[in-house]
Each structure stands twice: as C-alpha cells, then as structure tokens.
C-alpha cells in the first residue's frame, strides 16, 4: 500500500506503524461519572467495519507524524490522508 503523506508525498506503508480506529483520538473524560464504563468501551470495543475505515498510522521511519488514513478494509484502497493533528484540532473547534 502507498500512503499519500500530506507533507512528504507517496510513502510505502512499511514505513508506518498502525494503531487502529481514528476514534482513539477521542479519549473519554477520566473524571466523568461513568468514566470506567466509557474507558472500557474506548479501550476494547471497535466498529471494525468491512469497507470505509478511518484509522491512525504513525510515520515511524519518517517524520514521526500521526496520520488519519481513510482506507477501504475490503480492498485496501486509500482514499484520503490527513495529519492527525489537523483532525484533532478541527474536532476541538467543532465542540
């Protein structure tokens, strides 16, 4: 797979380490009343779709940036790549 890094251009996926579903950006509030239940959900439960999946990749052998890659898990086709920091910032602004 070739990942189109927003800053560095096309890179071999072998340069990256994978973390998982991009929803891991949204860490629950540890002080909330139902924090234990929410963390159990956050740490262990996944949508795991067959099809479009937004996911976190770390450019370990490159610029050490985290990316949000939109990829089809049924075909491995990558349709969109963003810097995770941009995604996180946009989410915060949206709140």
């Amino acid at each position: 797979m070739i990942i189109y890094h927003p800053l560095l251009g096309p890179r071999d996926s072998d340069e990256f380490t994978y973390l998982g579903d991009a929803s891991l950006i949204d860490r629950p509030d540890g002080l909330a009343e139902d924090a234990a239940a929410r963390f159990a959900e956050y740490v262990y439960m996944r949508d795991n779709p067959a099809g479009t999946h937004r996911e976190l990749w770390f450019h370990a052998a490159g610029d050490q940036s985290w990316l949000v890659v939109t990829r089809n898990t049924a075909t491995h086709e990558i349709t969109h790549v963003e810097l995770a920091s941009d995604v996180a910032r946009a989410r915060r602004a949206g709140r």
């Binding site: 797979m1 994978y18 579903d21 795991n48 067959a50 996911e55 990829r71 049924a74 075909t75 491995h76």
Partner: peptide, 13 residues
Amino acid sequence: DGYNSYAQRGNLP
C-alpha cells in the same frame, strides 16, 4: 500484516 482488513490477501512488506 498489522492493519484492519477483510481482503483475504496481504501485501508485499
């Protein structure tokens, strides 16, 4: 391979 997949085939690395 190390990433979510339902494709029943892997990659070269």
